[in-house]
Computed example of a mutant assay.
Amino acid sequence: MGKIQLKGLRFKAYHGYYDEERQKGNQFEVNISVKTIFKQASEHDDLEGTVDYEHLYRIIKEEMEISSKLLEHVVKRISDRVMSEIAAVKKVKVSLSKFNPPFGGDCREAVVTIKASRD
């Protein structure tokens, strides 16, 4: 089993509980890690035997473009799509960071993480 990660994917998106957050937008960062068996790819230099980074990125980008009140909802959608669209993925972990969340205190980022696996 191997691990493939995309780190530091930055987006301006419109997620937040308050209407103002969904109107003005904020900066977000997504990190994703998937576990897969990529023996064929490593031995034969064949994309068919691994997870395509572009497919992962496209899923994340499309889901980040859908405005949501809760980060928990966004990471669940990303996780669900990865598991349903990419059969080679055995486990997925998605973290979504929202920078400078507006709750009246000093906070660099709020982070929500989800994990899923095939049983």
Results as ranks from 00 to 15, higher is better:
Ser117Phe: 09
Glu85Trp: 01
Ser67Pro: 15
Phe38Asn: 03
Ser79Gly: 09
Gly8Glu: 07
Thr36Trp: 00
Asn26Asp: 06
Arg10Trp: 01
Thr36Val: 14
Asp52Tyr: 06
Gly104Met: 08
Lys91Tyr: 09
Glu109Ile: 02
Glu20Lys: 14
Gly2Val: 00
Gly104Leu: 06
Ile59Ser: 07
Leu6Tyr: 05
Leu9Ala: 10
Phe103Thr: 04
Lys39Asn: 12
Val111His: 02
Glu65Leu: 10
Ile114Gln: 02
Asp46Asn: 12
Ala110Phe: 11
Gly8Asp: 09
Phe38Val: 09
Lys61Leu: 10
Glu43Pro: 00
Phe11Tyr: 15
Arg58Pro: 01
Asp52Gln: 03
Asn100Thr: 02
Arg108Phe: 04
Leu70Tyr: 13
Asn31Gln: 11
Val74Asn: 02
Asp106Ala: 07
Gln23Phe: 04
His44Phe: 04
Glu43Gly: 00
Lys98Val: 05
Arg58Leu: 14
Ser67Met: 12
Arg58Val: 10
Gly49Pro: 05
Gln23Arg: 13
Ile60Val: 15
His44Val: 01
His15Thr: 06
Arg118Val: 14
Ser117Cys: 09
Asp46Gln: 09
Gln40Phe: 05
Ser117Arg: 13
Met64Gly: 10
Ile114Leu: 14
Lys69Asn: 14
Lys24Trp: 02
Ala116Phe: 01
Asn26Val: 01
Ser33Cys: 12
Ser84Tyr: 02
Asp45Lys: 04
Lys3Thr: 14
Ser79Phe: 01
Val34Ala: 06
Ala110Glu: 08
Glu109His: 06
Glu65Ile: 01
Tyr18Trp: 14
Ser42Phe: 06
Lys76Thr: 11
Cys107Trp: 00
Ala13Phe: 02
Ser42Gly: 14
Phe103Trp: 10
Lys76Ser: 12
Cys107Glu: 05
Asn26Pro: 02
Leu71Asn: 10
His73Asp: 10
Lys7Ile: 10
Lys91Pro: 00
Ser97Lys: 15
Val82Ala: 03
Glu63Val: 02
Leu9Phe: 09
Ile59Asp: 07
Arg10Phe: 03
Val112Asn: 09
Ser68Leu: 01
Met83His: 03
Asp80Gln: 12
Val75Tyr: 04
Ser67Leu: 09
Val51Arg: 01
Val111Thr: 13
Phe11Asp: 07
Glu72His: 04
Val34Glu: 07
Lys91Thr: 08
Ile114Ser: 05
Met64Tyr: 08
Lys115Ala: 12
Gly49Asn: 09
Lys69Pro: 05
Phe11His: 12
Ala87Leu: 05
Lys76Ile: 06
Arg81Cys: 01
Ser68Val: 00
Lys61Trp: 06
Gln40Cys: 00
Thr36Tyr: 12
Asp80Thr: 09
Ser95Cys: 12
Pro101Thr: 04
Gln27Asn: 12
Tyr53Arg: 04
Ile32Phe: 02
Asp119His: 08
Val112Ser: 07
Arg10Cys: 01
Ser42Ala: 15
